[in-house]
Amino acid sequence: MRLGLALLIALHGAIHLIGYREWSKLAAAGELSARTVLPLSPTGSRIFALLWLTAMLALLAAAALYALRRDAWWALALFGVLLSQGLIVLAWPQAKFGTLVNVLLLLPIVSAAAHARFSREVDSEVRALLARPSEPHASSVEPSEIERLPAPVRTWLEASGVVGRERAQMVRLKQRGELRASPDSAWMPTEAEQYFAVDEPAFVWKVTTKMMGILPIEGRDKYVAGKGQMLIKAASLVDIVDAADEKIDQGAMLRFLGEIVWFPSAALSPYIAWEPIDATTAKATMRHAGKVASAVFTFDPQGRVVGLQAERYLGGGADAKLTPWSVSCSAWRTFRGIRIPSQGEVLWKLEGGSFSYYRWEILDVEHNPAGPYGRESGARTLADPGPSEPAPKNAQ
């Protein structure tokens, strides 16, 4: 797909060389003006011919940048296509068929421009989240802090390795996985980044995938100042989902609560209260921005989180109803000294049965990072985690 589009842009650009040669000959002979829709002076004729060469260079450069996966390709391609079409209109009788290629190229170019805009907007939200005021040096988790917690929660925090370590104030992580929109739809491979603020709870999650392996889909889910919003776009142009109401707020809040398993020191935050249930389960209740959300966490004897359950609104709007929602964990790894769940799935329990809609794998987690992935000064590579710990056979 990428190679095909790069070749089409390059071929279209190369054809402009033929135009440059033909129009240059006509300009030199003083015959070009008779072939254009508007009459051109001798100087205008020479400029017209040179502009075909300019369009060729712009399109060839855009093809090379696209093949090299450089984000700036679309700007050069857009310039080249618009210039090309302007020249075609001026020389319409001879060059009109080039319009078909320009129209064909315009959709991926406009989509790339929209993607760049969407990425800038999400990056701005991420930078705002990471720029929140926090303590210069986060305090360490003290053993005395976990004594008041229910036994399985206390065992979890001890086994995770957070005791004695710096507590998380900001977090970034990378995921990959599979996503689907309905029980009978195909799985779509995903890549995602997520950023969290802990002291004042918030997150921004951005994801990319492809529908049917062709149509690019990107989304952003966030929870900021007690408000959630989910935005999903096709080809960065058409909104598939743009939801923000009290029911989305509740879902985003539950998501934050469930995802503290990737930065366990957040379990000690003042807005989260824990209640014992039995030796392997405990209820966490999050109170923030005047709202309340609760989930039941389940732990194994080794102190690992194996899942959680909650009542969550399935979507937003008047028809959205509270629906059993659960997360299961199937493997664990240690990232930068903290053991966390590294694989699992998320599902709804519908009247017709369970609907698994997201399978996830954590590729990297960093607490209190210097900045967003790949954009901070002296960007670091992903951590080399420890070996995966699969779930016991009797738990699978």
Rank of each mutant, 00 (worst) to 15 (best):
V306Q: 03
R380E: 08
A159S: 08
L68G: 07
L149K: 02
L347S: 13
P216I: 09
R255G: 01
S294V: 05
R220M: 05
G307S: 11
P301A: 05
T36W: 10
V261D: 00
D245F: 07
L78Y: 15
H137V: 12
P216C: 13
V305E: 06
N368H: 02
R255A: 09
V292R: 09
S33A: 14
R339Y: 08
F97A: 06
P387L: 03
A279V: 06
F118T: 05
W274V: 00
G307L: 05
A95G: 08
A279N: 15
P276W: 09
T281A: 11
F263V: 08
L59M: 15
G344F: 12
A186R: 13
K233G: 03
I109L: 11
G386Q: 03
A266V: 01
L17G: 12
A28V: 13
A62E: 09
K247G: 07
Q396R: 03
E191A: 14
E376T: 13
F355A: 01
A244L: 11
P201L: 05
P152C: 08
F118G: 10
E193V: 05
A159L: 07
R127N: 00
E366G: 01
A266K: 01
H12Y: 15
D249I: 00
L57G: 06
A383Y: 07
S388K: 00
V103Y: 11
R359E: 08
A112S: 13
I277A: 14
A14Q: 12
G315A: 10
R69F: 12
L87E: 01
E178C: 15
L100V: 05
A168G: 12
I15M: 03
Q175S: 09
E246I: 04
E275A: 00
L382W: 14
E125K: 10
R180L: 10
I240G: 11
M188R: 13
G315Y: 10
L268V: 02
P385F: 00
K174V: 08
R154H: 08
L308P: 11
E145G: 02
A112K: 00
V238N: 01
H367C: 04
V171F: 02
E193T: 07
L173I: 14
G44M: 09
L237T: 07
Y66N: 09
A235Y: 14
L8T: 13
E246R: 01
I47W: 14
V141W: 05
K174N: 10
Y357M: 02
A331F: 04
I88K: 02
A225D: 14
T334S: 14
A91G: 15
K206I: 11
L5T: 15
E389L: 06
R359P: 05
G378E: 04
A6N: 14
F79L: 07
R120E: 04
D278C: 07
A202E: 03
Y271R: 11
D242L: 04
L60D: 08
L5P: 14
H12S: 08
L78R: 06
P392E: 11
S269K: 03
L237A: 05
E147R: 09
R172E: 08
A289V: 04
T281S: 04
L82T: 06
V110C: 01
N102L: 11
C329L: 11
W332G: 01
K210M: 13
A244Y: 14
A234K: 08
Y20D: 06
M211P: 01
